[in-house]
Nucleic acid binder design. Structure first.
Lengths: 198, 198
DNA sequence: GTCTATAGCTGGATAGAC
DNA sequence: GTCTATCCAGCTATAGAC
């Protein structure tokens, strides 16, 4: 791995742990046993380094989600695919939601602005329409379509965000936590499908 | 409202918006048209000021939740009460989850440690047992009880955390968002009860 | 109690040797 | 490319006048 790569990985770790404001260039350098002057040599400034990571994280996640939401599957299959994709993607990068929320809270407008410049922004309109149609045809329970969508997203993402607190409240240790999360996809999918069945 | 109170309220606003690391004592002072020396006069240090707010936020939320989880109601009623209480509590302080997550991510252990010193920590063991019993008696669908609990929490809390992103993805404006959130309690309760019905 | 002024430190950024 | 040394802005915190 090149020095440039190594810096990026270490920076990702620190930014995710502490957020942009809390992260120190020194911490990143220490993480690598390097000097912070090197970070500036490769990435010019803290802000620039952060942006590189920011977009990398999103380019890993958003295109996948966009693809699942816009495929041409029947609703139930699409829900299953969405949950599987989302939970898998986050489970293999469990720090991502926290990272996103961290920066989202600092300056929501700037954050959303950055995102929109990528055109990988998931387009949920079509999915919502599909839900509405199934409801009109009485194939599934009636819900407010947006709440239904929020329920899906919430159950996929929140456990990863709130993990430390959930573990504290429940007393579940790390090993046990991983075992439990391994079956989350199936549990959530089944939960949703049961909730919409007539 | 006393100066001390005013400082606390302004500080809460800033800490929530920017997190501990991102908040500036100057921002808090400016918010009030005061001088930052005053903040130190009343609260000694940034850290002390933060702690006061931290515990105030939790003392507003946790005891309520603890109460709902440990009441002696049948499961379905308890679920309804839990969702109503949680969503109401957060809706009237929509910044709270973000605030919590912010600080949770900085140093999870210290965070949980602080919390445990209060004895208002919700005890979910009894609730989980109740869920298990209903499942064994085949009164409700079979789920992993912890996933079921996570689903409840997730749907209550996440929309408030991710609001800016959800609005961006969906294109929903502020007025419309408020309308939608006004019915969330009912939507979530119905969703859960439908998911567990046999 | 409230203000101005300033001390003292932290952390991002750069210069310059190697 | 990598390191050491150092600059300088921005921040917390305090001293001291009123």
């Amino acid at each position: 791995m090149s020095t440039e790569e190594k810096i990026k990985e270490a920076a990702k770790k620190i930014f995710i742990k502490r957020g942009y404001a809390g992260a120190r260039m020194n911490d990143i350098a220490d993480e690598l046993g390097m000097n912070k002057a090197l970070l500036h040599y490769y990435y010019r400034s803290k802000e620039k380094l952060f942006e590189v990571i920011f977009f990398e994280v999103f380019d890993m996640l958003l295109p996948k989600l966009k693809a699942t939401v816009t495929t041409d599957l029947p609703l139930r299959k699409k829900i299953e695919l969405f949950v599987n994709t989302y939970v898998d993607a986050i489970a293999s990068n469990p720090y991502v939601p926290m990272f996103i929320l961290h920066e989202l809270s600092q300056d929501p407008d700037r954050f959303v602005e950055k995102l929109k410049r990528r055109n990988s922004f998931p387009e949920i309109g079509q999915f919502i329409l599909q839900v509405i149609q199934e409801m009109e045809e009485k194939n599934i329970q009636q819900y407010h379509p947006f709440h239904f969508f929020m329920n899906m997203i919430s159950m996929c993402a929140f456990p990863f965000v709130a993990r430390p607190m959930l573990q504290a409240v429940s007393g579940i240790g790390d090993e046990h936590w991983n075992e439990i999360m391994a079956i989350r996809k199936e549990e959530v999918t089944r939960f949703i499908l049961n909730a919409i069945r007539i």
